[in-house]
Simulated scan of single mutants.
Amino acid sequence: MNTIHVAGGVGVADTAMASYDAALADANLHNYNLVAVSSVIPAEATVRAVETVPDLGPAGNALTVVEARRTVGPSDEVDFREGGRSGAEDAADKRAPRRRPNVAAGLGWATGPGPGIFYEVTGEDSESVRDRIHAGLDAGSSLRDWELTGRETRVEAAIPEPDRYTTAVVIAAYGESESVL
């Protein structure tokens, strides 16, 4: 039976791509060419949460994945007020404090005796990411005539460092890697 490994990581670096690479390294997925697929889990697969993904083949191979990824950089800011607000604002609202967002990425999965589904979410805090994962799994489950009784989630989150990029990833890696040549 094929195993899908779910791992996460956080990376901090001077560029967005370098922070993404560091987050992949944190999960031991930095030496593969990642090939994204939609979120269906094959019936014959076993999903296993791990701290880091084991060796899945030679560096440079293609690896099929479902990925949740969020990167925050030095110039990213959001309203301090919860949820922000659009439209007309009075002068006092325009002076509201601003903050750098947190970085969070999460992946949830629902399985049963047959196929299953993954659901990916990113955001600014672990709790809202988890809530949205559960809502997404509910919606995805209601679209299918599958018995999806087993549910799990994995969320990675960090507080960004000033003047650097921070990336959080959670990745489901399908089976072994394959040669791209």
Results as ranks from 00 to 15, higher is better:
1 M>Q: 14
1 M>P: 03
2 N>E: 15
4 I>V: 10
6 V>F: 05
11 G>V: 04
12 V>Y: 02
12 V>T: 13
14 D>E: 14
16 A>Q: 13
18 A>D: 15
19 S>Q: 08
19 S>H: 04
20 Y>A: 12
23 A>T: 02
25 A>H: 06
29 L>N: 01
30 H>R: 01
31 N>Q: 12
32 Y>W: 05
32 Y>K: 02
33 N>F: 07
35 V>Q: 00
35 V>M: 01
36 A>F: 01
37 V>E: 00
40 V>Y: 03
42 P>L: 01
42 P>S: 09
43 A>K: 11
44 E>A: 11
45 A>G: 06
46 T>N: 12
47 V>A: 06
53 V>P: 00
54 P>A: 11
57 G>K: 04
59 A>I: 00
63 L>S: 00
68 A>Q: 08
69 R>S: 09
69 R>L: 05
70 R>L: 15
74 P>Y: 10
75 S>E: 14
78 V>C: 04
78 V>W: 03
79 D>E: 14
80 F>V: 04
80 F>C: 09
80 F>W: 10
87 G>K: 01
90 D>N: 11
93 D>Y: 07
93 D>H: 07
94 K>W: 11
97 P>L: 08
100 R>M: 13
108 G>P: 04
109 W>L: 12
112 G>A: 08
112 G>C: 05
112 G>R: 01
113 P>W: 14
113 P>C: 13
114 G>T: 01
115 P>G: 13
116 G>W: 02
119 Y>I: 02
120 E>M: 01
122 T>K: 02
123 G>K: 02
124 E>F: 15
125 D>A: 09
126 S>T: 11
128 S>P: 00
129 V>F: 06
130 R>G: 05
131 D>I: 02
134 H>Q: 14
134 H>L: 15
134 H>G: 13
139 A>K: 09
140 G>R: 00
143 L>Y: 09
145 D>T: 03
145 D>M: 07
146 W>Y: 15
147 E>R: 07
148 L>M: 15
148 L>V: 10
149 T>D: 15
150 G>Q: 14
151 R>W: 04
152 E>G: 09
153 T>L: 13
153 T>K: 09
155 V>K: 09
155 V>P: 01
156 E>S: 02
158 A>M: 12
159 I>K: 14
159 I>G: 08
159 I>Y: 07
161 E>M: 10
163 D>G: 11
165 Y>M: 01
167 T>R: 03
167 T>F: 03
168 A>E: 07
172 A>N: 04
175 G>Y: 03
175 G>M: 08
180 V>H: 01
